[in-house]
Simulated assay, not measured.
Amino acid sequence: MKAEYTIIEGTLETPELTLYGLSFCDHCREAKKLLEKMGFSFRYLQVDRLPKKEIVRIKREIEPAGVKTIVYPVLKTDADFLYGFDQTIWEQKLRQAAEVR
């Protein structure tokens, strides 16, 4: 079974964003709400709801080099990854990324 992303439609199509979260994570829910509030379109995936084999594959794609534990949520942008949720940092990075376009 391949990971099925939920597509969240917004008014801002760029940058291309993918949010990786956990179903029980309050910070993941806050990050999702922030992206929606800011008007971004993004793909969303609850990693812990996937089959074990798919979780391993996704973790390999998103884990930072040399780190064994991933801090969720993870936001993949066109050029970067953000790990863990800090609203101030996320807002700043997202505004910068949207302005670059």
Rank of each mutant, 00 (worst) to 15 (best):
L22N: 07
K53W: 04
E91T: 15
K93D: 05
Y5R: 05
V100Q: 15
L34I: 08
L94E: 13
T69C: 06
F81Y: 09
I62D: 07
I58C: 05
K59T: 14
F85P: 12
R49W: 02
I62Q: 07
T69P: 05
L50N: 03
V56I: 13
I55F: 00
L34A: 09
K37R: 14
I89L: 07
V100L: 15
I62V: 10
A31P: 04
Y83V: 01
T11F: 09
K93C: 06
C28T: 15
E16Q: 07
G10R: 09
A97E: 15
R29W: 10
I58D: 02
K52C: 10
Y5H: 09
G39C: 02
E61D: 11
L94G: 14
K2L: 03
Q87R: 07
Y20Q: 06
T11N: 11
F81Q: 01
T6Y: 00
I62E: 06
V67I: 02
A3I: 00
K68P: 02
A98W: 03
E30R: 14
K68L: 04
A98G: 03
G84H: 08
V47L: 13
V56E: 14
A31C: 12
L34W: 08
E63A: 14
E4F: 04
E91M: 12
R57P: 03
T6D: 00
T88D: 10
F24E: 01
